[in-house]
């Protein structure tokens, strides 16, 4: 006799009834714990792994020779040290821009194509970039954010990111700090992470890439920054732009010590 399961709520309740201990006083916390334990974003880790080792692009090579800062193909801990300076491009790069570099230089993809496809439409099966960024970051799960600012360009990038965090512009007069400079704030019902506190910024840097429930796909830090500028009524932040890398450098360095745990889960 087939069971008729009415919806995700039904299966969630089924779980709630049997596996939740007596102190289930806060249903929101229970829900968050459930999402953390069974995050659909995990499905993209396998996808990213496949993409990483597959021979792809006009040159038909994998990404195994891609250097994320610790040597070609070395992934454990790599994301915890990004952004960092790369001598071969003479630039400070984050994970996503480094993936662009490798997809272009190693695999022969066209830069405009890689960037155009980097952020997938909501409700799609996700982009290659999203899966790859998640897979590579997941190889550092359990490891601490460990960005250093030894190179001159790293220090410039960090300082620029700090400047940009507080830079107000546009008809909303918003800089990042307007929403992310205080504790216990929210816009409507969306909690705002307090990024000028150690705890807050560590929460930020340890949980991206993340599954965005409303979009049904994995989203990355590049996407998140783009989305902030969108709702600030500012022009479109270009993918892998210097502003995006500067802000990421600032946040990651501030978040040093945070333990990577991806995929995160966002609403």
């Amino acid at each position: 006799m087939p069971n008729l399961l009415g919806g995700i709520a039904a299966s969630a309740l089924l779980f709630l009834a049997v596996s939740v201990p007596a102190q289930a006083a806060d249903p929101l916390a229970v829900g968050r714990q459930m999402l953390a334990e069974d995050n659909p974003g995990e499905l993209w880790i396998e996808k990213g792994k496949t993409l990483f080792y597959e021979k792809r692009g006009p040159r038909g090579v994998s990404l195994e020779q891609c250097d994320f800062g610790m040597g070609p193909g070395k992934l454990e801990g790599a994301s915890t040290r990004l952004p960092r300076y790369f001598p071969d491009t003479d630039k400070v790069q984050d994970l996503e821009s480094r993936l662009v570099t490798c997809m272009v230089q190693l695999q022969g993809f066209k830069r405009e194509d890689v960037i155009r496809r980097a952020i997938s439409p909501g409700g799609s099966s996700g982009s290659d970039m999203e899966a790859l960024a998640l897979y590579i970051t997941s190889r550092s799960n359990g490891m601490k954010m460990n960005v250093s600012l030894n190179h001159q360009k790293e220090r410039e990038m960090y300082k620029a990111g700090e400047y940009l965090f507080f830079r107000r512009s546009g008809q909303t007069d918003f800089g990042c700090v307007q929403c992310h400079g205080d504790a216990n704030k929210r816009i409507r019902l969306q909690d705002l992470i307090h990024m000028t506190s150690k705890q807050g910024v560590q929460e930020v840097v340890s949980t991206w890439p993340a599954y965005r429930g409303a979009h049904y796909v994995v989203r990355t830090m590049q996407w998140r920054l783009y989305d902030c500028f969108w709702q600030m009524r500012l022009p479109e932040l270009a993918y892998a732009s210097d502003v995006s890398i500067a802000l990421t450098t600032y946040l990651h360095y501030q978040g040093n010590g945070a333990v990577t745990r991806v995929p995160g889960f966002k609403r």
Binding site: E156, L164, E236, A238, A246
Partner: peptide, 17 residues
């Protein structure tokens, strides 16, 4: 002053509309 100059240049080059 240098940071401001560097960052403002980034702003000029990092957005489209």
């Amino acid at each position: 002053a240098t940071t401001r100059r560097v960052a403002e240049k980034m702003v000029n080059e990092s957005f489209t509309a």
